[in-house]
């Protein structure tokens, strides 16, 4: 029994990590159709920001408030990656709309620049974040132990999902965003500043990656390649879920995370990687548009 609970919790936990890392990409790639290879580097920046804030707290503030560094890091990571994302959109991405292959190359180049910058600033040696007291250790119930930071990540992803959903479907900005993504000329005719919307949307996607990076910092070491470890998985999740659909990404990450943990449990982690990819390939053969295909009257769909 406890084995099953642990298995389900691990599956849920991995799914939530995958969802958190790919939520931003679901917006930049899913909605905006920018093949954003630099998404992983926004994760990296978020993770490094957590480290920087931790060090600042350690150096300048009394030990008693050290635990507050983490919420502070979440906010700062969100802000910094949002601004960087906006700047990137203005400088590079905005010139490449409709040229998906070019945006792939350009963002890949940008990801290399970010990685090298991280190596120059922080060195090649990985850095490490110590979880604040309230997130270290775990909650033991019977024979199962649920670690606090995994519980926290599940909570964080729920909060992010609710906020993104509210913003996309219940706010004025969200309506404008959907309008621009679905039919740009028509939205422009309605007086929507589509350039501003593009910029904000890309910034938001990047900022979500920054928050995800913050949570990754709790799980392992931070180095310049951390983004590269996640980027493929993020694309797989978004493509599997169906491009342009947030619900798709939620279900997609559930499938990828759940099946990875399940197959790993009965075989080994190496086989699990292969099996999960195989399942996805077979699935996309049947439904090339992904789980939740966007129904649209546009001719290019």
């Amino acid at each position: 029994m406890s084995e099953w609970i642990t298995l389900i919790f691990n599956g849920l936990s991995l799914s939530s990590i995958i969802l958190l890392t790919s939520l931003g990409l679901a917006i930049t790639f899913g909605l905006m159709r920018v093949i954003n290879m630099a998404h992983g580097e926004f994760l990296m920046i978020g993770a490094y920001m957590t480290y920087v804030i931790q060090e600042l707290f350690k150096t300048y503030l009394p030990h008693s408030v050290l635990g507050l560094y983490y919420p502070c890091a979440l906010v700062v990571s969100f802000g910094i990656t949002f601004l960087l994302g906006c700047a990137l959109e203005k400088a590079v991405i905005s010139r490449l709309y409709g040229r998906e292959i070019d945006s792939l190359l350009a963002t890949w180049g940008i990801s290399l620049i970010f990685q090298q910058a991280a190596r120059s600033i922080f060195g090649t040696q990985g850095v490490n974040v110590t979880a604040p007291d309230y997130l270290s250790g775990g909650l033991t119930v019977g024979a199962c132990t649920f670690s606090y930071n995994r519980l926290f990540i599940i909570l964080l992803v729920l909060v992010c999902l609710v906020l993104v959903w509210l913003m996309m479907y219940r706010s004025n900005f969200g309506k404008q965003m959907n309008a621009v993504m679905q039919n740009r000329p028509m939205a422009q005719c309605m007086g929507i500043n589509s350039r501003k919307i593009d910029c904000m949307t890309f910034g938001l996607g990047s900022a979500l990656a920054g928050v995800a990076g913050c949570s990754l910092a709790l799980l392992g070491s931070i180095d310049s390649t951390i983004g590269q470890n996640y980027i493929v998985q993020c694309f797989i999740t978004v493509v599997l879920g169906g491009v342009g659909n947030l619900i798709g990404s939620v279900v997609g990450s559930g499938i990828v995370g759940g099946s990875t943990i399940f197959v790993q449990h009965y075989t080994s982690s190496m086989i699990a990687n292969a099996v999960v990819l195989l399942i996805i390939i077979l699935f996309l053969q049947k439904k090339p548009q992904g789980l939740f295909a966007l129904k649209s009257r546009q001719l290019d769909e």
């Binding site: 642990t6 990590i17 799980l219």
Partner: peptide, 20 residues
């Protein structure tokens, strides 16, 4: 006996196997 990918960051499965 378990092997992890060089870039693997999630060890929850392996830890579950260690417990079991």
């Amino acid at each position: 006996e378990e092997y992890a990918d060089m870039n693997q960051t999630d060890f929850s499965s392996i830890i579950a196997k260690i417990e079991a």
